[in-house]
Design a protein around this nucleic acid. Structure first.
Length: 435
RNA sequence: GUGGGUGUAGCUCAGUCGGUUAGAGCGCUAGGUUGUGGUCCUAGAGGCCGUGGGUUCAAAUCCCACCACUCACCCCA
């Protein structure tokens, strides 16, 4: 069997079994995805977060305004198209959509702080590589309406709790504050003044950023640029008293929780909407894409999206594919695929019909029941039962129909037992429970 | 957009000083057991050797182009 079609570049199929691509990167099985998703949901429940689901399709303008027109995402990575005068975009991230939904539906009127989480696919038209896809999956949270440092600290705590619940270790949390847009602007001016004399020594991209987005020069990976930056003014010196107190409180709260972090004054996140606290979670040894998650405070985003009142907010987004990479690197074993409680092997047309009815009856009782749909030999059906790791196989043929008792085989020991038809449900329900 | 790597069976890979019908292991199907799986034995199915062109008596093998995948730069989850 074959087809001339294949999945779109930068996307991937999640199959019942894990598989590896040509670069040796493992794609987790669907059961592993379910396990991670269930873990995320459980951590969210424990932290009192509620789920929000927004459309994959959003107005292009929402992303352009929300994420920032100067960002790479908006400038060159959007899957955007027009249809009957409406501009659509496949969402490249989920924060702006959540804030849009929050404002549109007046969720603040539910009262108090809104603690929301999401899981879903995002799309960016980048060049794919390890840990980076055109359709990828994020989960994250948004705490809307809370300006307290505890909201920042709880956001980080939730992220760490998910990693902990998944069994991830060797993580590094980098922390910084960006202050308010006003003091950031002041700092940007100072940074430009400082770097201007070195312009000739900077790379081409850094020179371009010097005009457009000087903050981004800070996270350069080029050694000689880092050298220059060593004596550069630091953002924290431009941050006002209030922001600094906020930041110090967040750090204190993290200390209280025993959350380890390293301060990194050069940590500037790529999206325009961040203010105050900003953070990134890394795992070493993932190749080029070491960032598992990133986030921070974005107190001005609601207003950027047209709100007449400010909505203080903080959140994070985590990349599921990156998480799997980290889990793989750490050799963390995830959930097994489910196996049937019983396999029904039938011989002959009459027995097949009896088996089909019985399968449905057992399934109605909540049992996981497998059977043959190809009319194969008993031997082949037994092989199939074995392959599927069914602990019990029920054999039904002419003899059993006549005796009105099925042959139930315990696969591991090979022991067989005659079970009267009217006692089957009770018998199998009991064995399934003890298994 | 730029650079490196790789394309042979469902999977992992052999085979390339050019030379008959292109191989192995695993997996799949069937038989060995007229109603019994796992181990074992046997058989079978499954490949335009990424695509197109060129060189040659002869190309999976040499040359060119293209395509796909992949890693990396940039940036991000």
């Amino acid at each position: 069997m074959s087809t001339s079609f294949q999945n779109i570049k930068g996307t991937f199929d999640i199959l019942p079994d894990p598989h590896t691509d040509d670069g040796g990167t493992r794609t987790a099985a669907s059961a592993e995805w379910r396990h991670v998703e269930a873990t995320v949901r459980d951590v969210m429940r424990r932290h009192n977060f509620e789920e929000i689901r927004t459309p994959v399709l959003e107005p292009t303008e929402l992303v352009a305004r929300g994420v920032g027109a100067s960002t790479d995402i908006v400038q060159k990575e959007m899957f955007a198209f027009e249809r009957s005068d409406t501009q659509y975009v496949l969402r490249p991230e989920i924060t702006a959509p959540v804030v849009r939904s929050f404002l549109q539906h007046h969720l603040d009127q539910r009262g108090g702080v809104q603690k929301l989480f999401y899981i879903g696919p995002c799309f960016r038209a980048e060049q794919p590589q390890k840990g980076r896809y055109r359709q990828f999956h994020q989960f994250g949270i948004e705490v809307l309406g809370a300006d307290q440092p505890r909201a920042d600290a709880e956001t980080i705590a939730v992220l760490m709790a998910v990693c902990d619940a998944l069994g991830l270790s060797d993580l590094r949390l980098r922390l910084n504050t960006l202050g308010t847009p006003e003091c950031r602007e002041e700092y940007v001016g100072a940074l430009q003044d400082f770097l201007e004399p070195y312009a000739d020594e900077l790379s081409e991209t850094s020179r371009r950023r010097l005009e457009r987005n000087p903050l981004r020069i800070l996270d350069t990976k080029k050694a000689h640029e880092q050298e220059i930056l060593r004596d550069a003014p630091t953002l924290i010196d431009f941050v006002n008293e209030k922001s600094r107190t906020h930041y110090d409180t967040v750090k204190g709260l993290l200390d209280d929780l025993g959350v380890e972090y390293v301060e990194d004054p050069h940590l500037v996140r790529g999206l325009d909407y961040y203010t105050e606290t900003t953070f990134e979670l890394e795992h070493p040894g993932l190749g080029a894409q070491s960032a598992l998650a990133g986030g921070g405070r974005y107190d001005r985003l609601a207003e950027v999206l047209g709100s007449d009142a400010p909505v203080p907010a903080v959140g994070f987004a985590a990349g599921m594919e990156r998480l799997f990479l980290a889990l793989d690197a750490a050799d963390v074993e995830l959930a097994d695929t489910p196996t049937p409680d019983v396999f029904i092997a039938a011989l002959g047309e009459e027995a097949e019909r009896w088996g089909f009815r019985t399968a449905q009856a057992l399934r109605a009782e909540g049992l996981h029941v497998a059977h043959d749909l190809m009319g194969r030999s008993l031997k082949a059906q037994m092989k199939e039962a074995n392959r599927q790791n069914a602990p019990y196989t029920m054999i039904i043929g002419g003899n059993e129909l006549e005796a009105e008792a099925a042959t139930v085989k315990e696969m591991e020991s090979g022991a067989q037992e005659e079970v009267p038809f009217d006692g089957l449900i009770e018998y199998l329900t009991r064995t399934a429970e003890t298994a």
